[in-house]
Design a protein around this nucleic acid. Structure first.
Length: 765
DNA sequence: GTTGGTATCTGTGGA
DNA sequence: AGATACCAAC
């Protein structure tokens, strides 16, 4: 076939090299709109045509959707064999491998995947069991502490031995975190369950402990490894990748693609340190670095604004993105008085763009910082009869009735799944109350077995009534277990839906609610039917149409991955969800201090830098039209709040802007907000609250912040969130004074703190 | 064990 | 504001 390599003609010189240099380590730094996906897909296609079998290629992506899209595009070049490429998220690929290998590390192959809610519930139970104060030991905080330990490869044992961590916990008056971690791990194992971090952590454990030479098996299988969105991987993920490709005499055929300027997941442990480490780790093995700086997406005003904006960040790989699409339109800036007005005006502008520029709904996106902001826009879009779709937010699988049914299915597949059991043992009500459940749970803890396993042993401690109810439940579940083994997912799910009584229970809700919930249940069953009937891939484990197989497939599916319908709709989503996408016209809304940048990040320079990268991602989604909006006042949590325009607006050079208010007024204009200083002060006060999830914590009752003007170099200070530190340096003046403070006990001891926002108490000096 | 009312928390992003 | 967790009374 002579047409085979036509795809190489579609690439520029750097892109072509990034595609054709297939052997040895490669780092591709890819700016926004620089054809990154094209490079990745053509690289894989090129590999298949020149040197590798599809199943020898492993591609790790950020979303399942990205993987699917990539496969489709590879298929267009090389045909159906593209389906055999291993492409998926870290979580889904490792889940797939662990299904096969789990027994080697003491897990059942039908292990359950716990979502965040399940994990928190396990932790709550442990806190209760240990008689600890759950204000102090906030389950969410514990989970994030455990999660961050896991992603640094710190086991419960290592945690207990780690001076620094123990010190932090003691400072926060939480000396038992390590024990919660230990019990949590044991409890998950007992239930045959893995949480999201375990899918990575256990994969690493498998490769590390190497039972039956399993590591070699995967090292040999994956001859070429590619990682997309490398800037958003964490330490643990990088270590797994290293295990797979970096061993003696390995060809080290590893290609990572990323953009440090688009790193927006540090809250989940992602670190751009991985990019720097990658460079170092493979320097001796002839690493090739390619920078894609040509932007094919956006016009010049947009690209220039993005370039200028990102210069405000301290650390970055220097690059300049170029556009050849001409100047294009200026960036529109619109100020609204209220969030409602913002919603109305954005929808007005959408209508105008549709008429004047002949855009379709699908060309347009509204991007916001938090999902909660979507409501006003929905309201006006509905009022104006404009079709829209919301990406993200509460996922379908998180709705109560869906979770209830899924819990029954999970329990039928894996009876040791304690979280599922607790969810359904008395739903619908069947006379098994809290005290009975507590007894079961206690006995399970004592005998270190799952709750299901101790059910036969519990009867002597119960009354006749409870025993009867319990026997009924056991009988019901046994019938489900048999059904699951005998028939396909759809038949089993149907049986469970009917017999469990969930459908009946839902009918007793309020009329509208009942209708919605019934519809959701029907939708769930339809989804299962579709799963059974369609053969998307030739993979063996997808040909498996059992309920167990279905549950495995949906556990890692998010709304982002749902196939959109073909209707022409305006897209509403968070900026995070927009990563990797592009639209002809983009509205970035809610550009206010405390919202974007989020108040959660406003107290450190690192936090602000990440918000800025997020804003960078937001504006570079736009091809031709970019509109920025903000509101002087916004209603949230029952209160009117007044915020200043986002600092990011000022960071865009006026020459790229087309503003409805005189530019010099942008920051100082407060005329529209009620000017009572007291009102502002209270709001400010709320926003500078410390987060509960952050450890260690200084007792707020005894904390006496000093006026920020008094902070000076050499002082020993106390920070609400970070504890004790020393002021090493101060730069900037007045409003923009930034202190570099060293907190010796932290992982990253040096923090750059904006004095305007931070609350610091001078201890001495 | 169940019911109904009240207190409490939540409150950035997502696999 | 809204959802959930918790508790006291039946």
């Amino acid at each position: 076939m002579s047409s085979q390599k036509n795809y190489l003609q579609e690439l520029n010189e750097v892109q072509r090299q990034a595609v054709t240099v297939t052997d040895g380590p490669v780092l591709v730094v890819a700016g926004p709109g620089s054809g990154k996906t094209r490079v990745l897909t053509y690289r894989i296609a090129h590999l298949i045509e020149t040197k590798a079998q599809p199943w020898e290629i492993l591609t790790l992506t950020f979303t399942n959707k990205a993987a699917k899209e990539m496969k489709n595009r590879i298929e267009k070049v090389v045909g159906g064999s593209a389906k055999k490429v291993w492409a998926g998220t870290f979580h889904s690929i490792f889940a797939k491998i662990l299904r096969v290998e789990a027994e080697k590390i003491g897990y059942p192959s039908n292990f359950t995947i716990y979502d965040t809610e399940d994990s928190k519930s396990v932790i709550s139970a442990i806190i209760k069991e240990m008689n600890l104060d759950k204000q102090l030991y906030n389950p969410g905080a514990m989970l994030s502490r455990i999660s961050s330990a896991k992603s640094k490869l710190i086991t419960p044992k290592l945690y207990a031995q780690n001076e620094e961590l123990i010190q932090q916990d003691r400072a926060g008056k939480r000396p038992y975190v390590y024990e919660i971690y230990e019990r949590y791990t044991a409890r998950c194992k007992r239930s045959g369950a893995m949480d999201f971090d375990d899918l990575l952590y256990r994969m690493f454990e498998l490769l590390q402990s190497n039972p039956d030479n399993v590591t070699q098996k995967y090292q040999e299988r994956f001859k070429y490894v590619l990682v997309d969105e490398f800037q958003d991987t964490n330490f643990l993920q990088y270590r797994i990748v290293k295990k797979l490709v970096d061993y003696p005499n390995s060809p080290r055929n590893i290609c990572v693609v990323g953009d440090d300027a688009q790193s927006i997941y540090s809250f989940r442990g992602a670190t751009i340190q991985n990019i720097l480490d990658f460079e170092n780790d493979y320097k001796a093995h002839g690493i090739k670095i390619f920078k894609l700086e040509q932007n094919y997406r956006s016009t010049e005003h947009i690209v220039q604004a993005a370039n200028e904006l990102i210069q405000y960040n301290k650390n970055q790989i220097q690059k300049t993105i170029r556009s050849e699409k001409g100047a294009g339109n200026r960036i529109k800036l619109f100020k609204a008085l209220t969030d409602t007005e913002e919603g109305k005006r954005v929808v007005d502008m959408i209508t105008e763009q549709k008429n004047r520029e002949h855009l379709s709904n699908k060309d347009i996106a509204i991007l916001y910082r938090t999902n909660a902001q979507s409501r006003v826009f929905e309201e006006y879009l509905r009022r104006y009869n404009i079709l829209y779709r919301i990406v993200g937010g509460l996922s379908f699988y998180q709705r109560k009735e869906v979770k209830d049914l899924l819990a029954y299915m999970r329990l039928a597949v894996n009876p040791n799944d304690d979280e599922a059991l607790k969810r359904v043992i008395n739903y619908p009500k069947r006379g098994i109350g809290d005290s009975t459940v507590d007894k079961i749970s206690e006995l399970a803890s004592q005998s270190k077995q799952s709750m299901w396993k101790v059910l036969p042993l519990i009867s002597p401690t119960l009354g006749a009534k409870a025993n009867k109810s319990l026997a009924g439940f056991v009988h019901l579940m046994e019938s489900f277990q048999e059904k699951v083994k005998a028939v396909d997912a759809y038949e089993a799910a149907n049986f469970i839906t009917q017999q469990s009584g969930v459908l009946e229970a839902v009918k007793n809700d309020a009329p509208q609610e009942s209708k919605d919930r019934t519809e959701n249940i029907i939708q769930l069953l339809d989804g299962i039917k579709e799963f059974v009937e369609t053969d998307l891939e030739e993979d063996a484990d997808v040909a498996d149409k059992s309920l167990a197989s279905y549950l495995q497939n949906i556990a890692l599916v998010t709304d982002q991955d749902q196939d959109k319908d073909d209707n022409d709709r305006v897209t509403l989503m968070s900026v995070h969800a927009a990563k990797g996408l592009e639209f002809s016209s983009v509205f970035v809304v809610g550009l206010e201090e405390n919202l974007f940048p989020s108040f959660m990040s406003s107290d450190t320079m690192e936090g602000i830098d990440e918000e800025r990268r997020l804003f960078y991602v937001a504006i570079t989604r736009a091809e031709a039209y970019l509109t920025l909006t903000y509101a002087a006042s916004r209603y949230s949590y029952g209160k009117m709040r007044y915020n200043e325009p986002s600092r990011f607006i000022e960071e865009i050079d006026w020459q790229h802007l087309d503003a409805d208010v005189p530019l010099h007024q942008r920051k100082t204009d407060t005329t529209s907000a009620p000017s009572e200083a007291s009102n502002r002060a209270t709001v400010r006060g709320n926003f500078t609250q410390i987060r509960k999830n952050d450890l260690p914590i200084v007792d707020p009752a005894t904390f006496r912040p000093s006026p920020s003007e008094q902070i000076a170099v050499g002082q020993r200070i106390l920070h609400l969130k970070f504890g004790e530190g020393n002021v090493k340096n101060i730069d900037g003046t007045n409003e923009k004074r930034v202190a570099t403070i060293v907190f010796p006990h932290l992982d990253e001891p040096e923090k750059r703190i904006m004095l305007k926002f931070a609350k610091l108490q001078i201890l001495e000096g």
